[in-house]
Amino acid sequence: MRRRDLAFLALGIVVALALPRVLYSALALRILLWALFAVSVDLLLGYGGMLSFGHAAFWGGGGYAAALLAKTFELPFPLAALGGIACAMLLAAPIGYLAIRRRGIYLAMVTLAFAQMLFYVANEWRGLTGGENGVQGVPKILPGLSVGRTADFYYAALPLVLVGLFVAYRIVHSPFGHVLVSIRDNEARAQALGYPTQRYKLIAFVLSGGIAGLAGSLYAIGNSFASLDLLHWTTSGSAVLMTVLGGMGTLWGGAVGAAIVLLLEDSLSSVTEAPGVVTGAILIAIVLGFRRGLLPEAGRAIEWVALRRRGG
């Protein structure tokens, strides 16, 4: 098990390093950051059993905060991203506090409602956010290095993304993570065992919001702008879709889902008239064909082949 994890890790890092060479750098950066975003959603959905349909609030909240910090104070981007994380976690605390009182679809609706509120605040607060036009012209700063080009920024941001992924991995594989899984499976029993389940859920929510905030911060700075799209409900929807597509409760499934969705969106935008329809059809086919998500199904396929070979 351990060896397979290491192999996966090595493969992941190689893919992450090679991505801007294989694709163009802007697309590679988008995939990298959406992957981190989807992982943050999976942390909550796959391990905590909480379907947040408002994660755009943290991705966008972090994005706007980082963009404004980088633009106003000309901060180096890691510092601006720290600000973005803080902002996202500050948003996640009260939203999470209220949302975790409900479960399932109701939790999803509460988070969606808060994200929509934030969307309209950003739209109306034009003096700060630039409204529809967004915060434009955000500089990419890193003392001592030039990261103005997207390809350079990709490699500068990669360590931060890896830290984010590592934090998610550590959370899941810690005692805290195991308690979280037990709450997902049977909250009443976890409570009976003496765990303060609400507190666990809230902490998970805030941590997940923070990781989404990191991804959003880097996304806004990498794009040089933060726009209303960051906060739009379809952004939350895409993140959930990527997670489900790649496989819930696998942590890295979201990354696979992100890559597939973005590659489809990108390649179809130049060839068809209705990229949405074609993407949708392909995604429905994948979800129907691979119920558990791509990553778990792929794992099962590998095991099956290995078994066959051993048997034959």
Binding site: R30, N223, E265
Partner: peptide, 11 residues
Amino acid sequence: KPDVASSKAQE
């Protein structure tokens, strides 16, 4: 979508 526009322009 402005982010799609931006990355397409870079491509």
